[in-house]
Amino acid sequence: MTGEVVLQIVLTVAAGLVGVGLYGALSQQSIVMIMMGLELVLNGVLLAGGAAWFLITPELPDAQMLVVVTLVVMAVEMAMGFAVTIAIYRSRQVDMVDMATELKG
């Protein structure tokens, strides 16, 4: 198999992760489950970044930086997600997005 085909297969797998994650993020009601969906999307980005580095530009660190940034985004998303969940739950006993919107005020 040539490098290009390998790259395309790996990227397709990554796209699968993005698709599944997107479905989860859109369909779930629980905030934590939505976060899990987003994490899956980013998981796909990790794979794509790694593949791009190895199969396109191994000489340059840019793709590696992309992976690092993705990891940081995951950490930030997670931390803020937990903090927001606690804050909402504390004030409204709610952990689902539908309720968070419906119970304004």
Partner: peptide, 9 residues
């Protein structure tokens, strides 16, 4: 069901 619980869900 406590505040705001959605039974439908």
């Amino acid at each position: 069901m406590g505040p705001g619980h959605d039974m439908g869900g």
